[in-house]
Design a protein around this nucleic acid. Structure first.
Lengths: 335, 335
DNA sequence: AGCGTCGCCGTGAACGTTCACGGAACGCGA
DNA sequence: TCGCGTTCCGTGAACGTTCACGGCGACGCT
């Protein structure tokens, strides 16, 4: 009983063999007899021996990569579908994925915790960028839906300006006269903690929905309930709104539910369109129109950045790598 | 240019300082002057130095735990909500979570890959248990919804027998006369790869739904589309079925969608009840009744097993630890 | 001048495993 | 008996970092 941990030497001593023989037994290597293998395995089990994965990986010069993924919430299908895509993208390369969400703590804490276990961290990081790269302790950060402004931080951003302009044009062609927006109360990709800052979606909306539409904005929580509540408030304050854009699909589902509750016909009385492009939107009644974000593309761009950062030339190519993905309208029946 | 990797010594040499000074600079430790810290940081960046997390964790005697989580799919909210719960449960303990899903490969491969990076692996493992524990190379496995039959494998199981009996009783009280079941084609928790084996849900159904109901079973894929397709086939073959139990909520959503498409009133003409208890079921029209699985309890039991296994007395307490969770009906309007 | 303190920096020795060897014991044919 | 191959097993030396020291100037105080 040295200083706590049971090492390979303890097992070797107890079994009356050498280190190397224990290794052979544990890892199923050849050059060991059936008898001793079983002996070693048995005594290892009795002692409760558990190899140190750190020592093992170090000694074996294993180059296995792990990327941390920080999401807003695992209860929002958008994030989990993004996670699914990222897994699909990085699995062929043999990378592992460490998961974390904002529900577990401050982004800076999450990054700090992850930095010891991951070779790169991608995802949504609210908070001060400088603090984030400091917490990362040298492991590269790839931020989503927010441009990178400090070295060490990279990004894949969404071009909402282009996307929302096109979306609103088409909605007008379909008869929309008065727009409204259900905006996010505490932007996941925002800057300050707790402090509200208009999201890129809102900025694009206000730029393209007409001068009088900037007033028809309510903020709501990022949940089904929040979306329902938001729509109720929006309609109370602006009864003339005939087309509402909702921050994301989850909230849009809540909004549609609320509309149904209030006897408002969708899309007859009110056009509803979300953002995200969740497949679950298709099973709503009516199916939800949405500004679809190509999560596969997001994942691929992020993985691409990580790849060039990790496997690329020794010096980091550029201060910051930024790539862009443009959302596209997905017309279903709700608008 | 030793043998590829840039080590701390390379940086030290390039900066004209010692190992320890580089460590101090990289980790923000005291006992170093401002000048040299910046010098070291700069040369480290130029060289593209990236500390080995394995060496670091080993030398620092860090005891950070990581648990692997193997799920069926990240596109099924049931799994991701379970993941969310597990994260919530283990985050306070400071554990990390490595994510993997069946979509990325065979469970045995996943376990083998994860075993090098995780201290324990929990989740859904189709396939031969012995092969799984072999692939785990000593790291404990906690299996969900399937009892453990070999040492090294532990489990948290679901008591569908009790739950489904109660469910069917209540459905009969509500007027159900003829039951049907949409069963899973390729059970995630099954035994063989590809080879069909009745799930515990089906076994319980057949035991309690009456002798004539065993025939009214169709198998379908684990997806919304699969559920829709399954219901269509079930109704074609058994038009007299007035109450259908669907393997999970995702498939049940598809079934409801199909019913609506076919002009079948739910619950008027057909009662539909799923399994899982997804919160998203509440936004369906009509809201989906379901046999709710307490994912928080599942996660807590799994984490509990891992905890006793890892922190417990040196010898593993028992050949196998098995804990049970009982699903409970969640009545909404679809039944 | 002597002494203690403080700030900065460097040197062995871990940490727990795997890799590349080398070597003993045994069997077998010539 | 010798030679040779097989099978099994053990011994340094890595792997790349952090920890616990110890050293060495500079400075201030008595």
């Amino acid at each position: 009983m040295g200083s706590g941990r049971i090492t390979i030497e303890d097992v070797a001593a107890a079994a009356g063999v050498s280190r190397q023989t224990v290794t052979r037994a544990m890892n199923g290597l050849p050059e060991i007899s059936r008898r001793t293998r079983e002996l070693v395995l048995r005594t290892a089990a009795e002692l409760g021996y558990r190899p140190s994965r750190f020592a093992s990986n170090l000694a074996a010069r294993r180059k296995t990569r792990a990327v941390g993924l920080v999401l807003g919430s695992l209860r929002n299908p958008y994030y989990t579908e993004l996670a699914a895509e990222l897994l699909d993208v990085v699995a062929p390369r043999g990378w592992h994925v460490l998961m974390a969400s904002h529900e577990q703590g401050d982004a800076v804490e999450l990054v700090a915790a992850l930095s010891g276990q991951a070779d790169a961290i991608v995802g949504y990081f609210p908070g001060d960028e400088a603090a984030l790269v400091a917490a990362a302790r040298g492991v590269p950060l790839v931020q989503m839906e927010r441009p990178a402004t400090v070295p060490g931080m990279h990004a894949v951003v969404l071009d909402f300006d282009t996307a929302i302009e096109a979306l609103l044009d088409e909605l007008r062609a379909r008869g929309a006269r008065r727009f409204g927006l259900v905006e996010l109360a505490a932007p996941a990709a925002g800057d300050g903690a707790g402090r509200y800052r208009p999201t890129f979606r809102r900025q694009a909306y206000e730029r393209h929905a007409g001068p009088d539409s900037a007033a028809a904005v309510v903020v709501a929580d990022e949940s089904i309930r929040g979306g329902a509540d938001g729509l109720a408030r929006l309609r109370a304050a602006h009864p003339d709104v005939d087309t509402v854009l909702v921050f994301n699909d989850l909230m849009a589902m809540g909004a549609m539910q609320q509309a149904q509750l209030d006897g408002v016909a969708v899309p007859g009385d009110l056009r509803v369109v979300g953002v995200d492009g969740l497949s679950l939107g298709a099973v709503m009644t009516p199916p939800l129109s949405t500004l679809s974000i190509d999560r596969r593309a997001l994942a691929e761009e992020a993985a691409g950045i990580v790849g060039t950062l990790l496997d690329g030339g020794e010096p980091p190519p550029h201060p910051s790598i930024v790539r862009t993905v443009t959302p596209r309208p997905l017309w279903r029946e709700s608008a």
